[in-house]
Write a protein that binds this DNA or RNA. Sequence first.
RNA 1: CGGGGCGUAGCUUAGCUUGGCUAGAGCGCAGCGUUCGGGACGCUGAGGCCGGAGGUUCAAAUCCUCUCGCCCCGACCA
Length: 630
Amino acid sequence: MDSRRRPVLGHRWLPAPKRKRLRRRGIKPSAHGQWKRAPARASGGVARGERPTGGSPAGATLPRFVGGDGTAGRGERTWRSAAPWSRGGRFDAGMTPMGDGGKGDGNLGGGDKAGGQQSLGKGGGKQADGQKGGGDGGKGGSQLGITPRATDYAAWYQDLVLKGELADYSPVRGCMVVRPYGWSLWERIRDIFDRFFKETGHQNAQFPLFIPMSFLAKEASHVEGFAKECAVVTHYRLKAGANGIEPDPESKLDEPLIVRPTSETIIGAMYAKWVQSWRDLPILINQWANVVRWEMRTRLFLRTTEFFWQEGHTAHETEQEAREETLKMIEVYRKVAEEYLAMPVLVGQKSAAERFAGAVETWCIEALMQDGKALQAGTSHFLGQNFAKAFEIEFAGRDGQRQNAWTTSWGVSTRLIGGLVMTHSDDKGLVMPPRLAPIQAVVIPIWRKDEEKAAVASYVDGFVAKLKAAGVRVHVDDREQFKPGYKFNDWELRGVPLRLEVGPRDVAAGKCVLARRDGGEKQIVDVAGLETRLPELLEQIQAALFAKAKAFRDASIHRARTYEELVKTLEEKGGFVLAPWDGDAAVEAKVKEECKATIRCIRAEDAGESAPAIGTGQPTTQWVLFAKAY
RNA sequence: CGGGGCGUAGCUUAGCUUGGCUAGAGCGCAGCGUUCGGGACGCUGAGGCCGGAGGUUCAAAUCCUCUCGCCCCGACCA
């Protein structure tokens, strides 16, 4: 096929590995470019690769058919349960090149940033590689292939998500694949919220993925907000065309559909149909769904083109009721964020500029990441009658008058997972708060001999059953291809809160080694009573994580009295900066332009002391929180 | 969309400036053996024709043109 381009060197048709293999067996290309066996040299000279050792003798003749039965021998798994998440490729590279490369010149992250998706590993190694073959034997310290936070926070985050197997990039630009471990985390978050939603009277339902394009236009500011990032469906059929397959022009839709970026419009249209009387209200519906917003720049979990979320949509008879709903749900968000994700948040309102497109008021929970940037972790909108008017959600009131309903909407997304990662994790990997951790405790059995293995196994079985009965999510890592040390690091990377190391010595003593992921301290404890001890310890860890994050957050709230001070503080210290602001949008815009910081949240409790507002100098009692944000 | 950078094995990459020996390596993967309390080791093996298409040339991973994709920086956002 290729031959026209390589008419001469016939042997080059073979793939390189194949050539290499043949070469090893002493077969070389002849002058005519054909492969043939080299004449055995001297006396029965054994060509390389034909070594008559164990395994397969005649290497050249029956190459790689061995092992056909190789699987049989290892079928005998005894107390086995597959890891709850099949992990495909182990985490790979990264750990390698850094190991020796970094040593050569003691550099650290001197590497170019360019790598992006695989930025790590590029770091050291490279330039000094003249000595390739040599290597330096030594294991490059404790490099786990995770970029340290101090070196490059964004790369660190990416390493954790990828190597912790929470998510992976997909072939679709900007869209991620949430892997089983990441999804199990989301399922836990989802279930917790879902329970609270139901407790507050909401029901789940499901609305279409597609929305008629015209719907979007019905609410003026809503279009403005979303028009720029909508995926549009224009055809419903493909056909073979000049350049392969293409949309069939005959199948063009009369009215294009958009893929929902959010569902206010289509839900509004349905509510209009369902609401006739005040007796039909309130309508309290939530949907768990995926939405699409065509983002320019994406980051795993934090901003992807498609993301997974929950959107609650309610319609009420009165303004007050709708306002109460808005606040009730932001409180649910606060509660779950703080009590389950152990992620402290500030609760407040958005400025007009930051408000949801179409909302009258937007309330938010705002978290702070370890790098000093804020993260909007959830929003609840009081939509007034904007959508009710646009979609004619009308009803006959108690007084017989026809009127518009008052609506709200509120949502949290898989972005919370990004927040979770950036709130607690460290240079060794993820750190999961126990209430959320898919696995709360992992057991690492240790043995040398088969008798030990059996003894350890039954010992472990004994207490693991009790732990499970006590409601602890425990997993036994009995993989035989990895040594204990490897497993320690592996589970630390995954953020499992507790690790139990159990070896022959422990079996004899009725003990085990208990290690905490946060802090990392180890202690030897009695196995008896673990089922009461672990749940307590898990709660302590939960509390400790929250306390630590909160202390950091609180220490990261600064004050500024003037515009200059605000800018300086944002640049030098990061975090939240509280400053007097009188509502002037121009000043807000100026801050945004100058230092990429926005008003994250306006809290009633920050109001107080009267001061000249930044920018305008007008006296104001309103103090607002600025920050750079994700 | 504007500005930069990068595409060589599953991953990280060497080679490209100055075309030519068989495209090297580390990790990972498979088999066997020894190991197993903080990422073990040995041996053997599998796996690339260099993002794609043209062109120049006796000869292209390497030079030229086009193209596709990805990453970074900016404008937008949960």
